[in-house]
Design a protein around this nucleic acid. Structure first.
Lengths: 216, 216
DNA sequence: ATAATCCGAGTGGTCTGACCACTTCTTTTA
DNA sequence: TAAAAGAAGTGGTCAGACCACTCGGATTAT
């Protein structure tokens, strides 16, 4: 009789069984867990199924396998095990806040990188942007940020940012004149000077300003 | 003739082959990739090995499997971010530096976030890690970082980090005693104190130490 | 008695072939 | 023509086998 369980994700069941087993037998981090063959026997499943479950756990860094020796627990906080698993396993609806936070992570990282590398600070594009702002020219918010991330020369970060930007609720369109214009100009100047703290600070103010404007 | 490849992680080889195959045949997100049997045949490995590789990719959200239908590249309508990561990771092996840089962006961002939020600084897990380090217990590098990103409660960032980590060349497994132990303990202490600058500085030293060790 | 060697049990890594459950498309049938 | 039956293909699982490796105990040599 073969199991061929219809309910998807047999590996979840195995992870669950493993958790109980670990708890019941007091297995601690670094300890050896039962061998694949024993697990298969105890859980009444095939060894290959056990292996697929273990492979998943290994990918998450929760266990470590050593050929000829065995499989070992590399985890110490069970509650966080559950936390991590739920993140990957459950198809949770995307949290808008996470998207925004992550987008800001990349934007700030770009600012920091530019401030810390002279040849990126001295790019003519910054002066160009400031000039545009001085003339009250048409400048889009996302242009500013995009130029920054492009300047960091990290294409992966740029790609991630593009995606996050699309999901973000933040209005990235045209900039408003007046205070926002000043804030961005200040940001760019600090950027050129390489003053990380002031640049980040100006960025924070900018974000705050945009959000405040958006709530009206 | 059995393969029984001694070298690490057949999984990576298969991802590599898969990448070439995807590029050569112009497979796009949402498209079907060759069946497990075909892949096994083409890559000259057993089907179970292919399955273990696919299971890993599935956990990362890079592919989607549907019984009776086949295996598909992650549908970008829902998981566009994952799609970008997957194509980037799978199609541009030269961009390893970008992957590392981006990973570090997320790690540093986690440190900053924790330092700036009291309830995240005061998590018992930090004390626990320090105790483990004091006892010279077995601690894995990636455990430290993972706990930090988990603590930020940004699942998206965590997911991105997991994927990036998987393809990073940085040795994330073993943790050496001595200087590295001190560095990490210092990092954790500054984290608890909420001293961003010192924490980041300790992190930088840590990274430097790991890279130096890796070049010998 | 001690140290070096050998060997076998145990373990993860992989392969093969088989069967099941499911989806899709084709063919047959009412 | 439309419904039903079938064939082919696919992921999911299982069982048994062999390989490469590690470790500890037994054997042997010193």
């Amino acid at each position: 009789m073969q199991n061929t369980k219809p309910s998807s994700k047999m590996f979840l069941d195995i992870v669950d069984e493993l958790r109980l087993m670990i708890k019941a037998e007091g297995i601690k981090s670094g300890d050896k867990i039962p061998s694949e063959r024993v697990l298969a026997e105890r859980l009444q499943v095939g060894r290959s199924t056990v292996r697929e479950a273990l492979r998943s756990l290994e990918l998450l860094g929760l266990i470590e396998t050593r050929r000829g020796e065995g499989t070992f627990l590399a985890d110490f906080k069970k509650h966080q095990l559950v936390e991590v698993l739920s993140t990957f396993v459950m198809q949770q609806p995307k949290a808008a806040m996470d998207v925004t936070d992550t987008r800001i992570i990349h934007e700030k990282a770009a600012i920091r990188t530019i401030c810390e590398e002279a040849q990126k600070r001295n790019l003519p594009v910054w002066e160009g942007l400031i000039m545009k702002l001085d003339e009250d020219g048409e400048v889009f918010r996302e242009d500013i940020i995009r130029e920054m991330i492009v300047a960091t020369d990290n294409r992966l970060s740029l790609k991630i940012w593009f995606i996050l930007k699309r999901y973000s609720k933040v209005p990235y369109e045209q900039m408003t004149a007046g205070k926002e214009n000043d804030l961005v100009r200040s940001l760019l100047k600090h950027l050129i000077e390489g003053d990380v703290i002031k640049a980040i600070s100006a960025y924070d103010e900018w974000i705050e300003h945009i959000e405040g404007e958006n709530e009206e």
